[in-house]
């Protein structure tokens, strides 16, 4: 009987745990964010940000925490299109910083966002492994040398890369984008994967944001600039998520990012300044 009672106890505990978990994880998804629901302390901000912002936002977050004792900033970095989907599916976030206007606009249209503001800009560069095995010297070589990795077309950087290739058509002929596309061997899910594949030498070239080579792979990469007239300027919008329980704190963080102090940190990582509304 003792054993039986013990097993009932275990069973009911399990059921209770399952039931509780069921309530809490209604949205399902990223486990590292699960703790944020329900037990979010007064001073915790959850920021969903484009993968390209990983290093710069990390530093801004630390600065914000220093000036706001008791506040912690949690980040969820990823492809902007994934973050958009996650917010749509109801994962809790206080701020969304997108690498692409489109995904921000989709969330605004669904009434999920407060007014977005452009806070920074980025441009593209070609990266090759340091020893440059395919001998790529210029953007023109992309059409006839080596293996290329791009981000998937749904990822902002993937879209910008293809727009840049379209722009190059004016310089290298109308077939240029198609020829380059033929050399693409993989469509990565975010910009960091593109950097990794090139840095490891698996691919001969990739197209990424200029800010991305400031990562730990810097000494394994060499950059080849785009012709300035063909480069793409990506402006990043940021907005507070509607219904955020920390809306006040969230707006303070957005203001810090837009302030000269925040812009200085972004510039340090290679981001370009924007004029509000441009």
């Amino acid at each position: 009987m003792k054993l039986r009672r013990a097993s009932i106890l275990i069973a009911s505990t399990l059921i209770a745990a399952l039931a509780l978990a069921g309530c809490r994880q209604a949205g399902a998804g990223q486990p590292q964010l699960d703790q944020n629901r329900g037990q979010q302390p007064e001073g915790q901000l959850v920021v969903f940000a484009a993968a390209s912002l990983t290093d710069a936002f990390g530093e801004i977050g630390r600065a914000f925490e220093e000036s706001h004792p008791g506040v912690t900033v949690k980040f969820n970095f990823g492809g902007s299109q994934q973050l958009r989907t996650q917010i749509e599916q109801g994962m809790s976030a206080d701020i969304f910083a997108s690498a692409d206007q489109k995904y921000m606009q989709e969330l605004v249209d669904k009434g999920l966002m407060e007014q977005p503001r452009d806070f920074t800009a980025n441009t593209l560069t070609i990266i090759v492994p340091k020893n440059n095995p395919a001998g790529i010297q210029s953007a023109a070589d992309l059409a006839n040398k080596g293996k290329l990795v791009l981000a998937a077309p749904d990822v902002p950087i993937g879209k910008y890369s293809r727009r840049a290739l379209e722009n190059l058509a004016a310089l290298y002929g109308p077939d240029f984008p198609k020829q380059v596309e033929k050399r693409v061997v993989s469509q990565e899910t975010n910009v960091r994967q593109v950097v990794a594949k090139v840095a490891l030498g698996e691919a001969d070239a990739g197209i990424v944001y200029v800010t991305d080579i400031s990562s730990s792979y810097r000494d394994k990469l060499a950059t080849i600039p785009f012709p300035p007239e063909a480069n793409v300027r990506a402006t990043y919008p940021i907005a507070v998520v509607k219904g955020s329980k920390q809306a006040g704190l969230a707006r303070e963080l957005v203001n810090l990012i837009l302030s000269p102090e925040g812009q200085k940190i972004l510039a340090k990582y290679g981001f370009l300044p924007v004029k509000e509304g441009s």
Binding site: V149, A152, V184, V185, S186, Q187, E188, T189, K197
Partner: peptide, 13 residues
């Protein structure tokens, strides 16, 4: 697969 073979429709996707 996604780490070693990458993601290319028709080839590795």
């Amino acid at each position: 697969t996604i780490m070693f073979a990458g993601n290319m429709p028709g080839i590795t996707q």
